[in-house]
Amino acid sequence: MSVKDRDPLTGHQTTGHEWNGITELNTRVPRVVWFFILVTHLWALAVWVLLPAWPLVTTSTKGILGLDQREEVAKKVVAANSDRAVWGERIKSLSADEILGDPELFARISDTGPQLFGDNCAGCHGAQATGGPGFPNLIDGAWLWGGDTDTVMETLRVGINAPHPDTRWAQMPAFGRDGLLPRNDIRMVVDYVQSLSGVKSPADTIAAGAEIFATNCTSCHGNDGTGNPDAGAPDLSDGFWIYGGDDEAMFRTIWGGRQGWMPAWEDRLTETERKIITVYLQHVRQDTVK
């Protein structure tokens, strides 16, 4: 096409160029395009005047609204914290029963407990707090370190076998791996321990197991196997098992020992948040027991 050619369809002139069969019309830019360019640019200009926008040598333009995202967020955090402090302080100071008995505070617990538990605890203990292999069930009433409010609060604060200086510490020795007990003895102890929660085995193995138990296990688990919450030694007679109560699981436990681990939450959750979780758990437990 030569210059001045017109496109028969639109009547617009071409630019007169042609590349491999492609031509271009010289249509002028539609007004609507200029209009919206103007609108977006005016908007940008307005934003630059209102907000921090252009860099200067060591600072930037501040904008006539005087807004700064950091100051804004700091203000909001202070306001939100003081709103929550009103009821948060009360939760911190009252006992679990008092909180659960107070309809206003109970509403706060059911508002916040599930999310705190869901974001911080459910990863190990499960969404329903029922635990799983290796992770304790929190609503079955069997507690390693004791289940009253203060004890649970303390466990949350310092963790178990955690890096916290005051952490709760417990370790069950690896009786088999470290050569403290031969395999056969372990099998007999397993039978004896199972008998504590009513599992039947031949009387002679139970008797032999009881003897081995008395020399090796009672210092932590107690003469009757009911455990010792001060040492984090579980009750072996209640039928609740963290690592499983069948022959194989128990053999493994005694053979290789156990040392569970729970993080210390002191630096990650406030005291009020830890209290909410504790009371929430107590409430879930009561709910489940009912």
Partner: peptide, 15 residues
């Protein structure tokens, strides 16, 4: 696109 449609580009200025 212009090749397949066999149409000139709508506007060089817009380009």
């Amino acid at each position: 696109l212009p090749k397949r449609a066999d149409r000139p580009i709508y506007s060089y200025r817009l380009s």
